[in-house]
Simulated scan of single mutants.
Amino acid sequence: MEKLIQGLVKFKSEDFETYSDVFSNLKDKQNPHTLFIGCSDSRVVPTLITNAMPGELFLLRNIANIVPPYREDDQYFGTQAVIEYAVNVLNVENIVVCGHSNCGGCNSLLNYYNQNFSNIKSVKKWLSLGLPALKKLNEIAKEKSLPVKEWMIEQLNIIEQIKNLLTYPYIAEKYSSKKLNIYGWYYIIEKGEIFNYNKETGYFEPINM
């Protein structure tokens, strides 16, 4: 905690002063251009890997960057509420679903039927939303090695969450009318490389600009 407190002091004395005009312009409202849906993994820092400034990204983070399919009832839905607010109130132009290498959530998903979830029952329930990706993996990669399956489940999970996004009526409408872009990114932690999903080819391709 002491390190975090020292970081707060450094932020106020150095970083905040550098970007004081930016924060001043943001004091009354935000106008982010992108909803970034990423994993809660501490190694994934959205603003760092995108070089984004404060006010650019509206962040949604959870285990394994999962998007629950759209539902209408009176339950509490934190993830769905964030998506709804970003799209219908903030009118973001883009949605990014960003998965990553060595994802603990996806590893648990890969071992879903053989893992002991007795002390993390909420995690088991949450990861069940990723089972379509596991089913797809078992259909196309049953004979693959474990390392190959690991990165495949991480990428297939991204694709499945994009499909889930399109079950939201307001997202489907904006996407079909080209008012909203949806991207699937795969981030390799140890290399700093990000791959973008090409829906035409079905492959993740390196982002090189």
Rank of each mutant, 00 (worst) to 15 (best):
residue 57 L to P: 03
residue 145 S to P: 09
residue 196 N to L: 10
residue 139 E to Q: 09
residue 97 V to F: 10
residue 115 Q to I: 00
residue 70 Y to C: 03
residue 80 Q to W: 00
residue 172 A to L: 15
residue 189 I to K: 06
residue 182 I to P: 15
residue 179 K to E: 05
residue 131 L to T: 15
residue 195 F to D: 00
residue 112 Y to C: 08
residue 185 W to F: 05
residue 72 E to F: 13
residue 89 V to E: 04
residue 64 A to V: 01
residue 5 I to F: 08
residue 191 K to G: 14
residue 10 K to N: 14
residue 1 M to Q: 09
residue 104 G to F: 10
residue 13 S to V: 10
residue 165 L to I: 13
residue 47 T to P: 07
residue 160 E to G: 03
residue 23 F to W: 12
residue 135 K to H: 07
residue 174 K to C: 10
residue 21 D to R: 12
residue 171 I to D: 09
residue 1 M to P: 07
residue 8 L to T: 13
residue 124 K to R: 06
residue 20 S to I: 05
residue 201 T to M: 07
residue 41 D to V: 01
residue 12 K to I: 11
residue 31 N to Q: 07
residue 108 S to Q: 11
residue 33 H to V: 01
residue 46 P to K: 06
residue 103 C to Q: 01
residue 165 L to N: 15
residue 24 S to I: 15
residue 83 I to R: 00
residue 203 Y to R: 15
residue 82 V to H: 03
residue 44 V to M: 03
residue 35 L to V: 07
residue 130 G to H: 00
residue 120 I to G: 09
residue 153 I to P: 07
residue 36 F to L: 05
residue 84 E to T: 08
residue 109 L to R: 04
residue 94 N to A: 02
residue 178 K to F: 09
residue 128 S to C: 03
residue 83 I to C: 02
residue 148 V to Y: 13
residue 21 D to P: 04
residue 149 K to L: 11
residue 96 V to E: 00
residue 155 Q to K: 04
residue 202 G to F: 11
residue 123 V to A: 13
residue 95 I to V: 11
residue 81 A to S: 10
residue 205 E to A: 00
residue 173 E to G: 13
residue 74 D to G: 14
residue 1 M to V: 10
residue 166 L to W: 07
residue 174 K to P: 02
residue 15 D to A: 08
residue 91 N to Q: 14
residue 169 P to H: 09
residue 205 E to H: 00
residue 6 Q to W: 12
residue 146 L to S: 05
residue 202 G to E: 02
residue 198 N to S: 05
residue 41 D to E: 11
residue 168 Y to H: 05
residue 7 G to L: 08
residue 44 V to E: 03
residue 63 I to Y: 02
residue 205 E to S: 08
residue 172 A to P: 00
residue 53 M to V: 11
residue 26 L to V: 06
residue 5 I to G: 10
residue 31 N to F: 03
residue 39 C to A: 09
residue 129 L to M: 05
residue 155 Q to H: 03
residue 203 Y to L: 13
residue 67 V to M: 11
residue 102 N to E: 08
residue 182 I to Q: 11
residue 154 E to S: 05
residue 51 N to W: 01
residue 209 M to P: 03
residue 98 C to S: 03
residue 91 N to I: 02
residue 27 K to F: 05
residue 28 D to T: 06
residue 173 E to I: 05
residue 132 P to N: 00
residue 81 A to Y: 04
residue 109 L to D: 14
residue 44 V to Q: 06
residue 56 E to R: 09
